[in-house]
């Protein structure tokens, strides 16, 4: 069930005005329709123009193959799965899937429960690289904060983790302050994706920054 949990003001870079964004726990048909009808066509057009992986990275669309509708279907009914959406004026600006069936890897919290961010994406029009004039600033930050908040709600003290697609590595490491544990050689990630984790102290620092 989709539930509005918070309203935050996000900067519209075009107008230089702050606009109210609603953070929802739960993704519904509206969000999936937005993905199909608003996000995907933009990404598909751009992908069709690409000839190399480096162009895809530069355009900030390494998630082009993520099918949010299929992912939502697969997670239906799973207690460990949560989802979040950010909307402005009813239009989906960002999406997140998490699972709480995950364990920490950093030595100081190794084996403890974490909220793992499975998939996080902002709408293509908010991405640097995809457009020279991205519109809303801070959508990804709101979603990471939502995961931290969920971690607190579950008793995990803010601990979170994720594997990052290459285009987002510096954002998680430098902007969010997550610990970079390097390339994960686990078969699921085939030595491609780097694993990042945030401690409880890191989560507090992120929220208060």
């Amino acid at each position: 069930m989709k539930e509005a949990i918070e309203t935050v003001d996000l900067l519209n870079r075009e107008t230089q005005q702050f606009e109210p964004a609603i953070l929802y726990r739960g993704i519904d048909k509206t969000n999936l329709d937005d993905f199909d009808r608003r996000w995907r066509p933009l990404i598909d057009v751009r992908i069709a123009q690409m000839t190399s992986p480096s162009e895809i990275a530069a355009a900030n669309i390494q998630d082009w193959h993520w099918d949010w509708r299929d992912k939502a279907k697969k997670r239906t009914g799973q207690l460990a799965s949560d989802s979040f959406a950010v909307e402005i004026d009813g239009i989906t600006q960002g999406l997140l899937f998490t699972t709480s069936a995950a364990f920490a890897r950093i030595d100081e919290q190794k084996g403890l429960d974490i909220v793992y961010l499975e998939y996080l994406a902002t709408a293509p029009w908010n991405r640097k690289g995809f457009t020279t004039r991205p519109i809303y600033k801070g959508v990804g930050r709101v979603l990471v904060a939502a995961a931290i908040s969920l971690s607190h709600d579950l008793g995990f003290q803010g601990r979170i983790g994720l594997h990052s697609i290459p285009q987002s590595e510096s954002w998680y490491r430098d902007t969010c302050g997550m610990n970079d544990l390097g390339v994960d050689m686990n078969a699921d990630h085939r030595g491609v994706l780097r694993y990042f984790e945030m401690t409880s102290d890191g989560a507090n620092a992120f929220i208060s920054s």
């Binding site: 799973q78 207690l79 069936a101 429960d113 008793g155």
Partner: peptide, 22 residues
């Protein structure tokens, strides 16, 4: 050991058990 309340631990156990079962 896990820094959880007993209630939080039982809820997490249920989530994990369902996840494994699925």
């Amino acid at each position: 050991e896990r820094g959880l309340s007993k209630t939080a631990l039982l809820r997490q156990a249920l989530r994990l058990y369902q996840s494994v079962t699925v």
